[in-house]
């Protein structure tokens, strides 16, 4: 018997469905747009597959998975996929995040 992974929640007990909705923030839409463009849903690029996106979301620990919002999981996963594919490096990302935080943070 394979142990059920954290994201695999179909059929498990859970609380009442809260009919929550929010209008997505622009940064969330941009994360979505990066997925659409990198995966070639729009345009010619084939730098990300939906399976990679899911794999790297599912690789988040249960605690992180629950704590993070939907597009927080996505941006983490897309970034991880770009590092795994060698499109960007962890060093470049670390440098850039420091730079952006100083500039915009």
């Amino acid at each position: 018997m394979i142990e059920r992974s954290h994201h695999d929640m179909g059929g498990l007990p859970a609380g009442k469905v809260e009919r929550s909705e929010h209008d997505y923030a622009q940064w969330e839409r941009r994360v979505d747009a990066l997925m659409v463009l990198l995966s070639g849903i729009k345009g010619p690029k084939k730098l990300l597959t939906v399976d990679e996106l899911r794999k790297n979301i599912e690789a988040l620990g249960p605690e992180a998975y629950d704590k993070m919002s939907y597009y927080e999981r996505w941006v983490t996963s897309i970034t991880q996929s770009m590092i795994q594919r060698g499109v960007i490096s962890t060093e470049e990302l670390a440098r850039k995040m420091v730079e952006v935080e100083r500039r915009d943070g």
Partner: peptide
């Protein structure tokens, strides 16, 4: 942190 990641990832790309 995650907005920072979005801006950084996008600018690198």
């Amino acid at each position: 942190y995650f907005q920072l990641m979005e801006v950084s990832l996008r600018e690198l790309l």
